[in-house]
Design a binder for these strands. Sequence first.
DNA 1: TCTGGGGTCCTAGGACCC
DNA 2: TCTGGGGTCCTAGGACCC
Length: 424
Amino acid sequence: MNVVALVDCNSFYASCETIFKPYLKNQPVVVLSNNDGCVIARSSLAKKVGIKMGVPFFEVKKIVKQNNVKVFSSNYTLYANISSRVMGVLKNYCDQLEIYSVDEAFLILNRYSERSFFQRAMHIKKTVKKWIGVPVSIGIANNKTLSKIANHLAKKDELGKQVVELLDRRQIEIALKVLEVGDIWGIGSRISKFLQSNSIQTAYDLYFSDPRWVRQHLGVVGERTYRELHGEMCFPIIENPEAKKQCRVSRSFESYVENFKELEQRIISYATRASEKIRSDQLQAKRITVFIRSNKFNKKNQPYYGDKTYSFISPTNDLFEIVRWAVKALNHIYKPGIKYKKAGVLLSDLSSEGIYNRDLFFQRSEKDLLKKMKVNRVFDRLNSRYGSGTICIAKENYEKFYLTRRKNLSPAYTSSFYELPTVN
DNA sequence: TCTGGGGTCCTAGGACCC
DNA sequence: TCTGGGGTCCTAGGACCC
């Protein structure tokens, strides 16, 4: 039987901001999404003053002011860097590690230790806090679903140890009784509504449901969750994730855009970023989708959503080809007179670079391909060395359109020589 | 006045094949 | 009036996750 530990950083983005500003320790902290739109992370003090996850920032401005909440724009460069440091520490303490998200990892703990699982988890927790400065909670169980539940309980134990072990049947059943069914990993809002309408309120109720009924109404995915509640392992630990299958770049605009030229500049910008991303992963795309939409929250203006997908004749990651097709797609879906609020580019059917079937009617010369690759490489090197946007397609207008509103951005403490923290 | 961004998996239905 | 059986592949849409 495996022992799975889920290590989850507490209020991760907020914790990252606090590392370099220790004076924030007793002050509520929140981090906002792009465009400073929504609250996407809250420190425990911020939770206490009543700021909910995902709320639009303007709705809580009053609470923020009244409680002297410190507000940050998201600084993904910083968070990614801190995340990799945390994962680097975790690697030392387990046989297998799955990095599940920027702030979470599943660890397989072996049985060859004199110390108990609980003691080892406590040690991991203390080490991460001491070395990196990030507080974590740890749940220990026999599979992912149960370790998620253990972690959920650990998070609630704010003043305690924040390590919870659910390894025996009796403990598990007690835990399931107090857990709402919608708090189970894999049971989202739709399904939990459905379950509640069938008198299944708690995880315990689901645990004692008829497996055939679960299979019939929740499909194979729900069945796996059900089995994991009963102690089976249905979701394996994935140490080396497969390559990405799609890559998306999309943004909401700070204000409405109606003009085609401006929309075009943005699409070129997103297509450029998406092509950069897949080149850096040595991938190529078979298809490209472009979408544009009006403001889905505003009921007064005319609603519109348009998208268009093209398949490339042969998979590509060439900047110019991707941008050309993105613009073509935009021309196809653009409707004048609409107040646009969001747009995006999606590259999909990704595969490893350099592997493709030759097209019978469209033969590219090797020389031509090599030349294109060279140009792309130079483009990427310039931008990586001198900063993104140093070189761009003339129509793009990088400065103006890629950067979004970020009024309270903290420095890139760990990844830029110009922004290192100073110590007095 | 203000409302994020980027992923995965499963399923049903259509088009096609022999 | 009546029209087989067994597959595959692709896509859109729905659900979920962080």
